[in-house]
Amino acid sequence: MAEYNLDHDKLKKLETYIDNLQEKEGALINILHEAQDIFGYLSKDVQLFIARKCGIPAAKVFGVVTFYSYFTMEPRGKHVVNICMGTACFVKGADKILAEFKRLLDIKEGNMSEDGMFTIDTLRCVGACGLAPVVIVDGKVYGRVKVEDVEGIIKEYKQD
């Protein structure tokens, strides 16, 4: 596996996952989810490895990765801030929350902060509309977020 510029243990883990799949046909998206969980993002080498391992054309893997917004080819920060931009959140000012995160972290949507601590992303409706506007950091949901709250949320994660 030396041909891939990837962590050996992680690659082994992914390989084991793929080997253990009962149904390989059509498993590409589940495999990509697993790979993104393991590596944090889907680099070219990860995609190539999956393509060759599963006998799927690399172009197809790339086509799939770029189609789904859940997959990313960029390294992600230690903490991923997801701002919900569903309608319910939008009408309750999610755009202002997003702007505040961008301002305080000084990065654009989809990018990672210079210190590698944060990535800001948006997503479409997590189905917690009752709590709009909603922010999710590393899977933890913050509801009814106000612009003033943003600084506090960032602080919570800056410490570690």
């Binding site: 059509g26 998206i29 589940n30 990509l32 989810h33 917004s69 859940y70 997959f71 997503l123 479409r124």
Partner: peptide, 9 residues
């Protein structure tokens, strides 16, 4: 079986 979406409406 479960199949996952990946963020495509």
């Amino acid at each position: 079986d479960l199949k996952y979406g990946a963020g495509a409406f």
